[in-house]
């Protein structure tokens, strides 16, 4: 029964890893940008939700937090436009190292800004105990914390709406066209700049949702940014870097491994659970670098 509980916990936690991986994969698929700043976007999201829900616009703590998420996401859209316009656009067409280093710079700016604004003290969301009660939620014999219900619902909503957008609408079609061949897409009248901007917007919103859940689990500190990066990279890699569906599957697998293998190993080597995602990352890189659903790059001279 303990094992069953671990599996359910792992899958529940995995949904939010999947959302972070989705944020990462989307930027990579459409813009061919390796977004190292994903952890810092998650961190910024946690702090923004903390700030906006701290305003206390609504009495009910649950609605208050959801309103905080919505306001933070709207703020995130503005930051996404700024990111694309001022940091990424000057570099299109340049080497991959430049693009990576620019996301590193973005990450440093975001992380630095949160530290300057909110300091390094551990924070919790307003109404944390009402929204995420310490008593676990029970389904039959299984007990899971309330945070994971949020995680599952949020992941389901954002992933479902994203997949609908990506697969069924004209906008998603344009996005896939740009990801396939930006120049050909441009000749067919698709504005690449707009597509890139919208992509960053979706990535920010996904990261902010992950910020809500990670912030609720660990408390809001700088650590969230490392946790985010540490979960997003392996999850994205397991699924293959350019497959949104694979990202979710990768997240679920990573959560499963972390909560089963990690918990078992932790009994023998205390503290090893913290580096389980990195070990998974190394193993996946060595065994299957292009992931389960990734495009295998064929290199020619």
């Amino acid at each position: 029964m303990v094992l069953l509980e671990m599996i359910v916990m792992g899958l529940a936690a995995g949904t939010i890893y999947g959302v972070m991986a989705l944020s990462f994969v989307l930027i990579y698929r459409v813009g061919k940008i390796v977004n190292i700043a994903v952890g810092d976007m998650v961190l910024l999201g946690a702090y923004l939700i903390f700030a906006f829900s701290g305003l206390g616009l609504v009495e009910d703590p649950v609605i208050n937090l959801i309103l905080g998420l919505i306001l933070a996401s709207i703020f995130g859209l503005v930051i996404a436009v700024g990111t694309e316009r001022f940091l990424m656009r000057p570099l299109y067409g340049q080497s991959i190292l430049s693009l990576i280093m620019m996301t590193v710079a973005l990450g440093m700016i975001l992380r630095g800004a949160t530290i300057v604004k909110w300091g390094t003290v551990l924070r919790v969301f307003p109404g944390q105990h009402e929204v995420f009660p310490p008593i676990p939620f029970t389904i039959g014999p299984i007990e899971i914390p309330y945070v994971y219900l949020w995680s599952i619902t949020g992941a389901f909503l954002i992933f479902g709406s994203f997949l609908y957008l990506f697969r069924k609408t004209l906008f998603g079609f344009a996005m896939r066209a740009v990801s396939l061949d930006p120049e050909a897409a441009a000749t067919h009248g698709i504005s690449i700049k707009k597509i890139y901007t919208y992509t960053w917007m979706i990535a920010y919103v996904a990261a902010f949702l992950a910020g809500l859940v990670l912030g609720a689990i660990n408390g809001i500190t700088v650590i969230v940014s490392y946790l985010g990066l540490a979960r997003a990279l392996p999850a994205a890699l397991i699924g293959g870097l350019d497959s949104p569906g694979g990202a979710m599957l990768g997240g679920l697998l990573l959560g499963l491994i972390e909560h089963t293998v990690g918990t078992f190993l932790n009994a023998y080597i205390p503290g090893i659970r913290a580096i389980i995602p990195y070990i998974v990352l190394l193993v996946v890189l060595i065994v299957k670098p292009y992931g389960l659903f990734g495009t295998v790059r064929i290199e020619r001279v």
């Binding site: 280093m101 710079a105 700016i109 800004a113 530290i115």
Partner: peptide, 17 residues
């Protein structure tokens, strides 16, 4: 610590552009 990270970020971005 945070201010330093911001400066580093701005310097890297400026140099890259």
């Amino acid at each position: 610590f945070g201010l330093r990270a911001i400066f580093y970020g701005i310097i890297i971005a400026a140099i890259l552009i």
